[in-house]
Lab assay of single mutants.
Amino acid sequence: TRVETATETAWISLVTALHLVLGLSAVLGLLLLRKQFPAHYRRLRHALW
C-alpha cells in the first residue's frame, strides 16, 4: 500500500506540473501573439469573449 501511495503522489505532482507548464505556455503564447500580431490578438479576443 505504501508503494501505491508514493505512485499516487508522483502522479499528482506530475499532473500539477503539467498543468502549470501548460498554463504558463498559454500565457506566454498569448503575450507573444499580442506583441507580434495585435490585429490577430484582438480578433481572437472577440471570438473568445
Rank of each mutant, 00 (worst) to 15 (best):
T1R: 03
T1N: 02
T1Y: 09
R2C: 11
R2E: 09
R2N: 07
R2V: 11
R2G: 08
R2T: 14
V3Q: 01
V3C: 03
V3N: 03
V3R: 01
V3E: 03
E4W: 00
E4C: 02
E4D: 04
E4P: 02
E4K: 01
T5I: 05
T5L: 12
T5F: 09
T5C: 01
T5R: 02
A6H: 10
A6D: 03
A6R: 07
A6L: 03
T7N: 10
T7G: 14
T7Q: 12
E8Y: 13
E8D: 08
E8K: 09
E8I: 04
E8Q: 03
E8A: 03
E8M: 00
T9W: 13
T9Y: 04
A10P: 04
A10R: 06
A10W: 15
A10L: 09
A10H: 14
W11L: 13
W11P: 06
W11D: 04
W11S: 10
W11K: 09
W11C: 03
W11Q: 12
W11T: 10
W11N: 12
W11V: 11
I12C: 02
I12F: 13
I12Q: 03
I12G: 06
S13F: 15
S13W: 14
S13G: 09
S13D: 08
S13R: 04
L14D: 01
L14I: 03
L14A: 11
L14K: 07
L14F: 11
L14V: 06
V15I: 12
V15P: 05
T16H: 11
T16N: 02
T16F: 08
T16C: 12
T16G: 09
T16D: 04
T16A: 10
T16S: 04
A17N: 03
A17V: 09
A17E: 00
A17H: 00
L18K: 04
L18P: 02
L18M: 07
L18V: 07
L18H: 00
L18N: 01
L18I: 12
H19S: 15
H19R: 06
H19G: 14
L20M: 04
L20R: 01
L20H: 02
L20G: 09
L20T: 06
L20I: 09
L20D: 01
V21P: 00
V21W: 06
L22C: 00
L22F: 08
L22R: 01
L22S: 03
L22P: 10
L24V: 07
L24Y: 00
L24S: 02
L24R: 00
S25H: 00
S25Y: 01
S25R: 01
A26S: 03
V27C: 09
V27F: 12
V27I: 12
V27R: 00
L28S: 13
L28R: 02
L28F: 13
L28P: 04
G29C: 09
G29K: 02
G29P: 06
G29A: 08
L30V: 12
L30W: 15
L30Y: 15
L30I: 10
L31N: 11
L31P: 01
L31R: 07
L31E: 00
L32K: 07
L32E: 08
L32N: 02
L32G: 14
L33S: 05
L33H: 12
R34H: 05
R34Y: 11
R34E: 01
K35A: 11
Q36R: 15
Q36N: 11
Q36T: 05
Q36M: 12
Q36L: 14
Q36A: 13
F37S: 13
F37T: 04
P38F: 14
A39K: 12
A39D: 11
A39Y: 10
A39P: 12
H40P: 05
H40L: 15
H40E: 04
H40A: 14
Y41G: 08
Y41A: 11
Y41E: 04
R42L: 12
R42Y: 08
R42C: 04
L44R: 03
L44G: 02
R45W: 09
H46K: 06
H46A: 12
H46S: 12
A47Y: 13
A47V: 07
A47L: 10
A47W: 09
L48F: 08
L48C: 08
L48T: 07
W49R: 13
W49Y: 06
